[in-house]
Amino acid sequence: MTLWQGACHCQAVRFEVTAEITHLRVCNCSICHMRGALNIRVPRAALQLLTPWEGLSPYRWGGGTARDYFCPTCGIMPFRRPSDPTAAERAAGVPPFDGWAVNARCLDGFDIGSVPLRAIDGAAI
């Protein structure tokens, strides 16, 4: 596993994440499409915030189970808690995910062209 350093644009929000990045998730839901984030998913314990939680602004949308965390100064979203599966997804066997989606564009020194992209059909949810 690799320890990555990450931050928002203005560096007010700093974090570390332990992950082997094998692909990046490109979601087509309305917010991910507009944001342009390329995410990796990691377990809850893999993300360590190095700045106080009070320095972040949370945003909830849709079903209200996802939480996007933004820097209130520069507006960048370095990571988010993905939404819980819908009833239809649970019925189809989609397990809940208790971790983080980290914006790989916020990782220091990570080459986003070094791994493949995986399309996620979030718009269908």
Rank of each mutant, 00 (worst) to 15 (best):
M1S: 15
T2C: 05
Q5M: 12
G6F: 09
C8Q: 01
C8W: 02
C8R: 01
H9I: 05
H9Y: 08
H9F: 05
C10T: 03
C10D: 03
Q11M: 13
Q11E: 13
A12Y: 03
A12D: 13
A12L: 14
V13I: 15
V13W: 01
R14I: 01
F15Y: 11
F15G: 02
E16H: 10
T18K: 15
T18R: 15
T18S: 15
A19G: 11
E20W: 06
I21W: 11
T22H: 11
H23F: 09
H23E: 15
L24K: 09
L24C: 01
L24P: 03
R25V: 11
R25E: 15
V26F: 00
V26H: 09
C27I: 05
C27F: 03
C27P: 06
C29P: 08
C29R: 07
S30C: 06
S30F: 04
S30K: 07
I31F: 13
H33K: 04
H33I: 01
A37S: 11
A37F: 01
L38K: 11
I40M: 12
V42E: 14
R44Y: 13
R44I: 10
A46M: 11
L47S: 07
L47N: 09
L47A: 04
L49P: 01
L50G: 07
L50K: 15
T51G: 08
T51P: 06
P52Y: 09
E54V: 06
E54F: 06
G55P: 03
L56E: 02
L56F: 05
S57D: 11
S57Q: 14
S57I: 00
S57W: 03
P58F: 09
Y59N: 10
Y59D: 05
W61T: 14
G62Y: 08
G62I: 01
G62W: 06
G64S: 12
G64E: 12
T65D: 07
D68F: 13
D68G: 09
F70H: 13
F70S: 04
F70G: 00
F70I: 01
C71M: 07
C71T: 00
P72D: 11
T73W: 08
C74I: 08
C74W: 06
G75Y: 05
R80C: 06
R80T: 02
R81K: 14
R81D: 00
S83A: 14
P85A: 04
T86C: 02
T86Q: 08
A87H: 01
A88R: 07
E89Q: 15
R90N: 02
R90S: 05
R90E: 10
A92G: 06
V94P: 00
V94A: 04
V94W: 05
P95Y: 05
P96K: 05
D98H: 15
G99E: 13
G99A: 09
A101V: 05
A104M: 02
A104W: 03
A104G: 04
A104L: 04
R105L: 12
R105A: 03
R105S: 03
C106S: 07
F110Q: 04
D111N: 13
I112D: 10
G113A: 14
G113T: 12
G113Y: 04
S114Q: 13
P116T: 10
P116K: 11
P116M: 11
R118T: 14
I120T: 13
A123G: 00
A123W: 00
A124G: 01
A124N: 05
A124H: 02
I125Y: 12
I125F: 11
